[in-house]
Design a protein around this nucleic acid. Structure first.
Lengths: 179, 179
DNA sequence: CGACATTGGTTCAAACTTGAAGCAAACTTA
DNA sequence: TAAGTTTGCTTCAAGTTTGAACCAATGTCG
């Protein structure tokens, strides 16, 4: 079977993508490392937790949302726990499971760090994109993600104890979801 | 100064991008690791070398093309050298410098590996993109890269010894540049 | 109930990445 | 041309990631 090589257009797009993604991740990691002492992934973990009901998430759940392996997450949460930003709790309904909970300290760290992070994301990406391009990017990426992450149906959120409706006090003018 | 948070559109695009880039890199790394025993970055290094005149590139040059740090490159080339895919040579015109040269063995590895890699890139990305989207992606990424990597003017290729015009025998129906 | 496969997480060693030093060969300039 | 700076690359330690076990708690059947 003869290989279908990339067309020149695809080739250019692919190269540009590789370059951009490397540069982007680097820029963001650097900024976050300096101002928050943690890489992008760790920030994402905090951000994801902050949005979850009760600011708690099962490990596997968290791994799925951040698109990383469970083992990578175990390490990351271990580090964040050492930093006091996250606390591990046993899951009451499944004794195998464990739940990562964002501490107040972690929430504070997130709040303190978010502005600088958004600023970087803007400067690196969105400030140079037209609204149409934002839409195009979202469309493209959503398609890729859908295609790649097996097409499991979305897990329905059950009303387990640590996942009650309540949502906590939504302080001041912060965004409801963190970049 | 009040932070300009991301708009809902931007937020969605950003999340989608993060997810897609994680999934994409994972898929490609996994495939390459299995079939070539090396991660994507290492493949890219070989690909870049294969396109260079004489299949040789100064370390810094190579680092710039692949968008990685010199220290990361040093390690990577060290590994590739151990594998026999690359050989390090001293630079005749600058005794500080060293030149990475793709060996025949490395070239063979690349040729053997490329088809599976392209196939993965296609399956993961391009097969789900319209031609317009390919163009959009390229445009967006090129913009980001341009914006991020300082705006140094392109280095002019000098005619140093190991960079003579010649281009070598271009075997068969292989692409001139590797995905 | 009692095998057996599955799921949720962690652990471990090996590989990789980071960023700060370090070293030596250019380059600059007084 | 000696002193001081920059450039090219490597080294080193600390941190992170990977993937293959591994362990314990569920689930599933017969």
């Amino acid at each position: 079977m003869t290989t279908r090589w990339l067309t020149p257009d695809e080739q250019r797009a692919w190269r540009a993508y590789i370059a951009a993604s490397h540069l982007l991740e680097d820029a963001i990691d650097r900024q976050l490392q300096q101002e928050a002492g943690m890489p992008h992934l760790y920030y994402s973990i905090l951000a994801n937790l902050s949005e979850a009901p009760e600011r708690r998430l099962r490990m596997t759940d968290l791994a799925e949302r951040t698109k990383i392996t469970r083992s990578r997450l175990t390490y990351a949460v271990g580090r964040l726990e050492k930093d006091g930003a996250v606390r591990r709790e046993g899951c009451p309904t499944d004794r195998r499971g464990s739940v990562a909970a964002l501490t107040d300290e972690g929430m504070t760290l997130l709040e303190r760090t978010a502005p600088g992070h958004v600023e970087t994301v803007r400067a690196a990406l969105f400030d140079h994109l037209t609204p149409e391009q934002v839409g195009q990017l979202e469309e493209i990426c959503a398609g890729v993600a859908r295609n790649l992450q097996g097409d499991e149906p979305g897990t329905v959120a059950e009303d387990v104890p640590w996942r009650r409706r309540s949502s906590g006090p939504c302080t001041s003018s912060q965004p409801q979801s963190w970049p």
